[in-house]
Amino acid sequence: MKGISLEIKRSETVAIVGASGSGKTTLLSLLAGLDTPSRGQIFLGEREITALTEEQRAALRGEMVGFVFQTFQLLGSLTAIENVMLPGELKKQADAESHARELLERVGLGHRLSHYPRQLSGGEQQRVAIARAFASSAEILFADEPTGNLDSATGATIIDLLFELNREFGTTLVLVTHDERLAARCDRAVHIASGSLVANGATEE
């Protein structure tokens, strides 16, 4: 990545768009504090995450960041509800279970609470992942090609769900996609090519 200067406002929805290998996922990892740049500064809220240790970044993630991955990244040994309970449990919230149940019902999986990921379809798995992302009451949500592994109909439902919940919770959403239609639903699209910012502007919608 080189010469990237980018600001994302609270409650904004931003799409990072680019061809495969352009560096969009890397940018997302950096913004989310999953990775560290060799040079430069990144701020998340008030905190400069580039100055934090991995340990401090982990704490920050737990506090204010949620994730949705292309490959879902659910724990195979946990049921759907247990996966969604994780963030709450990490924060030692007493109501982690009831909160997780509500969220799963909200994403339409109230009837599959105790199913294991391998017993769920791809779309269902991604809905569990979305429920988990919102379970942490994160201020900012990062989604890496959330529909990349899904057919277009399922993908569309997932995206509707993601934006719906995003509005409901007033979350900031940063998502990586190469799907122009998805990007068009965001407030703003950031175009990346060969690790550089080529365009940064409001979408037409």
Binding site: L34, A59, R61, L75
Partner: peptide
């Protein structure tokens, strides 16, 4: 592998080193 994956996901979700 299984353990590493579990701990890495916990890490993404913000679990502390101690935990």
């Amino acid at each position: 592998d299984e353990r590493l994956k579990q701990q890495a996901i916990l890490r993404t979700l913000g679990a502390s080193q101690r935990l």
